[in-house]
Design a protein around this nucleic acid. Structure first.
Lengths: 182, 182
DNA sequence: CGGTAGGGATAGGGTTCT
DNA sequence: TAGAACCCTATCCCTACC
């Protein structure tokens, strides 16, 4: 009864990704209305965009939505009585720290780290960008070696323990996000 | 970007309903400021209250806002040959009838009936109150015996066949509501 | 910009189809 | 039967209006 399933073409998917890079996640109607993407996505609704982005993201992180849900069920509570996930936030005084030679963290900023920070900064997602968004930003904007994702994940971990990123807590968030605070 | 959805707890919903019973609909800021409810609703805004009340009301009437909108779009001005559910409306001249000793219906008005009519009147829901709302009004405002709901249902039926309530037809209405016309 | 009403968008759970 | 595409609706956002 509903229309037959309309599979997403690579062109549509690329347009969606570019739209998210430009406007951020959660701006589905804005992306649809952007003349840069509206022709490519003219057969999609804002809800379609949201659903497709969810499929893309969850696939990249967990392999599938079902696995993601299973993983969430298994995930123990983070701290007290509220279920939370960690969000990693770029420090507001990041610039200052990085220019301060006495801070140990600045020693270990790699060029990939700079790209990561650029991604987080440019994505401008108010609630933070998840790894998928960061991966995609880099893929869209740089020539990427094959194991870029692993490298990025490693650097994210490092940046959050020793570097200019800091972990903060959010309620009602179940995936680890990396946010540029400020 | 949208904030993570903060689902309404049963306690919050009860507080909202009690607030509406006390202050009426559309008095969202008043309800929020009432110390009787402010602690329970401290994480909600006046707009949140308005939205939640709309959701409660429209759900009771149509099942969902979307169905309500669809029904409204399809609804021809008057009634014809379509499937309908019954809505029971308190007659506008109810007072007059009840004070007129010659009207047969007034003989069988019980004290519970009066409470029911008070509930319908005071709830002031423009599209009528469903049984749940009526039950809740009574529970909030009176000491209730255990089988109050059954009693109310029985009296509602009686009042609509012999008493001051009258059945009218609505299109695309899937739950029986009891409305104070006026 | 204080408050409400109402249209509309989003988030997340759920369902259908392949 | 897992995964992609799609549906449902509670919640949240935006704007007009007073």
């Amino acid at each position: 009864m509903g229309a037959p399933k309309q599979k997403w073409t690579p062109e549509e998917e690329a347009a969606l990704k570019a739209g998210v890079l430009k406007h951020g996640t959660g701006k589905w109607r804005t992306i649809l209305s952007d003349p840069q993407f509206s022709s490519l996505l003219k057969s999609r609704s804002n809800v379609d965009l949201k659903d497709k982005w969810r499929n893309i993201s969850v696939t990249a992180l967990w392999g599938s939505r079902k696995k993601a849900k299973l993983a969430l069920k298994r995930a123990p509570k983070q701290d007290d009585n509220n279920t939370r996930a960690l969000t990693i936030v770029r420090l507001a005084n990041d610039q200052e720290q990085r220019t301060n030679p006495t801070h140990p963290s600045k020693k270990s900023i790699t060029s990939l780290d700079k790209i990561i920070l650029e991604a987080i900064t440019n994505l401008k997602e108010p609630r933070g960008s998840d790894r998928t968004s960061i991966f995609m930003y880099i893929e869209e904007n740089f020539k990427t070696p094959g194991n870029m994702k692993r490298h990025v994940a490693v650097r994210l971990k490092h940046l959050s323990s020793n570097g200019p990123l800091v972990k903060i807590k959010h309620k009602y968030r179940f995936s680890t996000n990396y946010t540029s605070a400020g």
